[in-house]
Design a protein around this nucleic acid. Structure first.
Lengths: 128, 128
DNA sequence: ATAAAGGTTCCAGTAATGGGAAGGTCAAGC
DNA sequence: GCTTGACCTTCCCATTACTGGAACCTTTAT
């Protein structure tokens, strides 16, 4: 299977698939003409990566998850630990963004938003 | 005023202040020895930048906000538009992260997390 | 024969810094 | 006067996870 079809099947851009090969996440075979040749397991692996990335796991997280995935004897506790750490990060990010949202929506609400030069948003950025 | 003091006053790392000069956000004077020389207005501007960045405005947003801030005749509607767009972005990010959190916390809850190799998290990543 | 659609490698750029090298400057202490 | 240490300078490389583009080769269809 050539790269374009893999791209269609996994939803990953061809560029990204090549990049994943570069950094050692997949190792497709090569045909005589130099084209990458993917089989079912490669596609499966890439689809796994696409989903994990979609859930916001970093590339390095994915590397770890892949290793665990391919290790028949892995402990599910290891996977859980990665997922839990990731969950904590997500929750932190959400908290930060919610703080921003609160401040910003206060500011937007306070701003009359017309042609007058008086603007509470800038005032706030000016003086803290 | 030398860069270190400005860094202390604004909370921005010296590196970042130099970078902001590079990209044209501030233009400190230069002393005879080549050192950057900041005055009150520079510090004020940098403090403004620090706050705006702290609220998650991008550098380019900041450039726009700074221009409006320095324009005595600006319309507060312009500022409000930037802030509203940013608010919308933040809300999108929060929504995305909350989806991830929901999925992940389901997965973590479903995973027994012991030494057995059976892991619902990997199963889910495997089959979508 | 030619053109389109695919494939390849490599180089550079993104956002917003951070790290560190190599070297100039300044103030204090001896 | 000299040294030490803290500060300043510029410059280049690294980060994350790709994305775009150039230059070039292969396959397929007309």
């Amino acid at each position: 299977m050539n790269i374009k079809e893999v791209a269609t099947r996994t939803g990953l851009p061809a560029k990204t698939i090549r990049y994943y090969e570069d950094i050692g996440l997949v190792t497709p075979d090569r045909a005589d003409n130099g084209y990458r040749s993917f089989d079912r397991t490669h596609v499966h692996k890439l689809a796994f990566l696409a989903r994990a990335r979609g859930l916001g796991f970093s590339i390095e997280d994915c590397r770890g998850l892949l290793a665990l995935w391919e290790d028949r004897d892995r402990a599910s506790g290891d996977v859980r630990a990665i997922a839990k750490a990731h969950l904590a990060e997500i929750e932190e990010k959400i908290a930060g963004l919610e703080e921003m949202r609160a401040t910003l929506s206060d500011l937007v609400a306070a701003c009359h938003g017309d042609d007058r030069p008086d603007c509470p948003i800038l005032k706030r950025l000016e003086s803290g």
